[in-house]
Computed example of a mutant assay.
Amino acid sequence: MANRENGKAGTGERVVVIGLGRFGTSLARTLHALGYEVTGIDTVEKRVAAAADFVTLAVQGDGGDEALLRSLAVDRSDFGVVAQTENVETSALAAMILKRLGVGWVVAKAANDLHAELLRRVGADRVVFPEQDAGLRLGHSLSVRYINDYIPLSPFTGVAKLRAPAHFVGCSLGELCAPHAGRLDVLLIQRGREVITAPAPEDRIAAGDELLVVGADPTIDAFAEPDDAPS
């Protein structure tokens, strides 16, 4: 087992990331930048060496090895992430051990639906499909020109971040939302560094604004690109 430490101080909250492939590495890097104390574990020495630059502790070892996880005191972690999917058995074992050691919240990446079911059965609190989720979000952002990002809430409902089209500029929210009353809500407006939460109907849209809206997909599409909008 090889250990590499990075002495950056953080918020005191701890997380263990098992699997330092592209997903695990990106996640570990982000969490460390946010101030978490991150322990990263992977069997591949090259990945561990690379992660040493941006995690608190990088360890070469098997994430399904209970003795290793105990020695790293992962039971003191606020949450754990099983980010590797190459070996389904190791993935499920790692999730199960994290829960057994007392990690309160365990998130695991799944390769397919069967893998996801197994992870849930062994105790994973949340199962994610990063590639599938990214494809879904990109698909929605491409289907409407003004959508910058999208988070699905159900198969046909979601939260979308919209770049204000030119025909929105100068209009009030009341005017824009009237055709969709009761079916769409504007949660906030981002204007540069300013964030306007719970905007009022009389608030007017300025050039460059971004709107966070929630509603059914067809309603969001119609709001962003009404039939009478200038092309």
Rank of each mutant, 00 (worst) to 15 (best):
3 N>E: 14
5 E>K: 13
6 N>D: 10
6 N>K: 09
7 G>F: 13
8 K>P: 09
11 T>S: 15
13 E>D: 12
14 R>S: 07
16 V>G: 00
18 I>M: 09
21 G>Q: 07
21 G>V: 04
21 G>S: 09
23 F>S: 09
25 T>H: 11
26 S>I: 07
29 R>D: 10
30 T>E: 13
36 Y>D: 03
38 V>A: 05
38 V>I: 07
39 T>H: 05
39 T>W: 11
39 T>K: 12
41 I>P: 01
41 I>L: 10
42 D>M: 05
44 V>M: 10
48 V>I: 07
52 A>Q: 01
52 A>C: 00
54 F>V: 08
57 L>H: 10
64 G>C: 03
64 G>L: 02
66 E>V: 06
69 L>P: 09
71 S>H: 12
72 L>R: 11
75 D>H: 14
79 F>I: 06
81 V>Q: 02
82 V>M: 05
82 V>Y: 03
85 T>R: 06
86 E>N: 14
90 T>C: 12
92 A>E: 03
92 A>V: 05
95 A>N: 02
100 R>M: 09
104 G>E: 15
108 A>W: 03
109 K>E: 10
110 A>Q: 01
113 D>W: 07
115 H>M: 11
117 E>D: 14
118 L>G: 06
121 R>W: 07
121 R>V: 05
123 G>D: 00
124 A>G: 14
125 D>V: 08
127 V>L: 03
131 E>H: 14
132 Q>N: 11
133 D>W: 10
133 D>V: 12
135 G>A: 09
139 G>W: 03
141 S>T: 06
141 S>C: 06
142 L>P: 07
147 I>H: 04
148 N>F: 11
150 Y>R: 00
153 L>E: 06
156 F>P: 04
157 T>C: 09
159 V>M: 12
161 K>S: 13
162 L>K: 01
163 R>V: 10
167 H>D: 15
167 H>L: 11
169 V>E: 13
170 G>K: 05
175 E>L: 08
175 E>H: 10
175 E>S: 09
176 L>W: 00
177 C>T: 15
178 A>K: 13
181 A>C: 06
181 A>S: 15
182 G>P: 01
184 L>T: 00
190 Q>S: 14
190 Q>M: 09
191 R>A: 02
192 G>I: 03
196 I>E: 01
199 P>E: 04
200 A>K: 15
201 P>S: 12
201 P>V: 11
205 I>G: 01
206 A>I: 06
208 G>P: 04
213 V>T: 02
215 G>E: 02
217 D>M: 01
218 P>K: 03
219 T>R: 04
219 T>W: 08
220 I>H: 01
220 I>V: 12
221 D>F: 13
221 D>Y: 10
229 A>R: 13
229 A>Y: 04
